[in-house]
Design a protein around this nucleic acid. Structure first.
Length: 551
RNA sequence: GGCCCGUUGGUCAAGAGGCCUAAGACACCGCCCUUUCACGGCGGUAACACGAGUUCGAAUCUCGUACGGGUCACCA
């Protein structure tokens, strides 16, 4: 046995398989030409992040549009940062947003597919097998440097203005002999396994990023860590092994990875793997004191996708909004296909923005309002109550105490309307918006607009009471307002009033406003006639009387 | 600091040397429609970061500057 073989046996004595074993175990996927295999590989370090959702969406739709496969893989190689229930949180979150998962972790505890296990902490033997092979080939070696050793080297490099890192002459254990290694191990020293990089900073490599285009960078010459001292791989190594074995065709990930691409390409080539296509997704940004910055888990509530659920944004609305960021031609498509499922949109990575988009709440609200406006009352009822049940128990009780009443309320300007109102963007707005329908929420406010005289208002309400019939349809209802209008010198027709404003105190429109204030305490509500029908005769009279009383 | 990437109205963006007197959407403003609000219709304000160069011609190509972002771990 030569030095390399001895080293390999010394370092990884329990590994008895060779890479061939795994190559045979995980065969090529049987997929049609052009089908793309994508994945999202989150670390269970906390809740589902907006950025993770975004990249998941991009991966998902890329697979879908090409008839491919989208799978999840858990990157739990850093035990220190792991959070209890993290896997479940992320996977369930994906499903909740309609990101379907074909393979890998399909719930917090279930895996599906023949390329597993889909959790890196359970794949140690696989990684070690490949590392052992690399050592035998002289492409990897043990490094016994401690954190302090590395720190000292870095300091020297910084002082001498040399590029920091474990490369070239600073790769101290690069040519360690079997004997040296054995002695150190016998002393009880721990080690990591590093790549013996054949690269040089002088060389340039280029790769074609499917999102950002052609990128040129110096070749990697750093002997970066493959296996940590606990025998678990670093991200770089796990990425190469897993994406190769799981036959990922497109690695679509956050653009913080761009600078690691030279490492990855080198690794794939050294391992004899086919290099996948890379696409680097720009982060979603946020405006902070006039400065653009990446949305941060720590500072921004909307970084946690849970925020949107709490606010009562429909998950599909968040997704559609993200689609407008992901694909510059999505909005046009949406206008042309207002009812189509977004999944049928033909997604093209080339249409993605190369710079990070600012998160735009206005736009989200617009997308959301349009979506909710298109719903029928039954659907709104279902979604609203589901939200309230989880986030506002008190409101939930009110909504469900009399579901027919609530549904009638929700049907106003919606079910029979040619052009439904665009009002609600998120369910948390509903409580305030519909407050006057519920005794517990309604606080009368009898403030009149400045152009209306209190005496007139009082007289009008008293007169209106006499003719009011809850059974009137919209036309009859308005005719009655017009009927009484002349008695107070108000114009029955808006046009008349506009043509000759001095002849009148106001128009039928102003009278409606008085009535609206009496009934709802507001000047801005959906169709008043319908509101009065839903509220019922007694309640309306009660409110009218209450207003007459205070005037 | 080294290495990457980026920069078109307030926001998202179209744009591949002449079709750009620079599209569209959101937001904002005005008018019309209208019982209110909304929808809808019509219109408006508003942008190629800066400087050189290449070219008959540059938002588009090149270089430099500025600004922004990312990355330089036994984290992903």
């Amino acid at each position: 046995m030569d030095n390399r073989e001895l080293l390999a046996e010394l370092l990884l004595p329990n590994i008895d398989k060779t890479p061939d074993y795994y190559e045979n175990m995980y065969p090529e996927r049987n997929l049609p030409e052009g089908a793309r295999v994508t994945r999202v590989a989150p670390s269970p370090t906390g809740y589902l992040h907006l950025g993770t959702l975004f990249t998941s969406l991009v991966n998902r739709i890329t697979a879908t549009s090409s008839g491919g496969v989208f799978y999840t893989r858990i990157e739990d190689t850093d035990k220190k940062r792991e959070v209890e229930g993290g896997i479940e949180d992320i996977i369930d979150g994906l499903w909740r947003f309609g990101i379907t998962i074909d393979e890998g972790f399909i719930s917090g505890s279930e895996q599906k597919g023949i390329y597993g296990p889909y959790q890196q902490s359970h794949r140690a033997e696989i990684y070690q097998t490949y590392v052992k092979d690399l050592i035998k080939k002289g492409l990897a070696y043990p490094c016994f440097c401690t954190a302090e050793d590395l720190e000292a080297v870095r300091k020297v490099q910084e002082e001498n203005k040399i590029r920091t890192g474990y490369h070239g002459e600073y790769a101290r254990h690069r040519d360690i002999s079997y004997e040296e290694a054995k002695a150190l191990i016998d002393e009880g020293k721990t080690f990591v396994v590093r790549l013996r990089s054949p690269g040089s900073e002088e060389n340039r490599i280029t790769f074609d990023d499917t999102i950002k285009g052609k990128i040129e960078m110096p070749e990697n010459d750093e002997d970066f860590v493959l296996l940590k001292s606990d025998g678990i791989p670093t991200y770089h190594f796990a990425h190469a092994i897993d994406d190769h074995l799981m036959h990922t065709t497109h690695v679509l990930r956050g653009d913080e990875w761009i600078s690691s691409v030279p490492k990855h390409i080198q690794l794939f080539k050294l391992l004899g793997f086919k290099v996948p296509k890379y696409g680097h997704v720009s982060p979603i940004m946020k405006l902070d004191n006039g400065a653009k910055r990446k949305i941060s888990k720590r500072k921004d509530p909307e970084a946690a996708v849970h925020f949107f659920a709490e606010q009562g944004y429909e998950s599909i609305c968040v997704i559609e909004y993200l689609m407008t960021i992901a694909a510059s031609d999505f909005e046009d498509w949406r206008r042309a296909n207002p009812d189509a499922d977004y999944r049928t949109f033909k997604f093209n990575l080339k249409k993605m923005s190369v710079s990070g988009a600012l998160f735009d709440e206005n736009k989200l609200n617009d997308v959301s309002k349009t979506k909710i406006a298109a719903m029928k009352s039954d659907e709104v009822y279902e979604h609203l109550t589901a939200w309230a049940k989880e986030f506002d128990g008190e409101f939930y009780e009110m909504l469900t105490a009399n579901s027919d009443f609530t549904k009638a309320m929700l049907a106003i300007d919606r079910d029979d309307a040619k052009k439904p109102r665009k009002d609600l963007a998120k369910w948390s707005e509903a409580k305030q918006y519909f407050a006057y329908f519920f005794d517990a929420l309604y606080t009368p406010n009898h403030t009149l607009p400045e152009n209306i005289d209190a005496a007139d208002a009082k007289a009008f309400l008293a007169e209106y009471k006499k003719v009011y019939d809850v059974a009137d349809d919209r036309q009859a209802w308005f005719d009655k307002i017009k009927l009484v209008a002349p008695k107070f010198q108000f114009a029955a027709e808006t046009k008349e009033y506009k043509a000759n404003p001095d002849a009148y105190k106001g128009s039928a429109g102003d009278l409606s406003t008085i009535l609206r204030i009496a009934i709802t305490g507001r000047t801005n509500t959906p169709d008043l006639c319908s509101i009065m029908q839903v509220l019922g005769y007694d309640e309306c009279i009660k409110r009218i009387d209450a207003m007459i009383e205070v005037l």
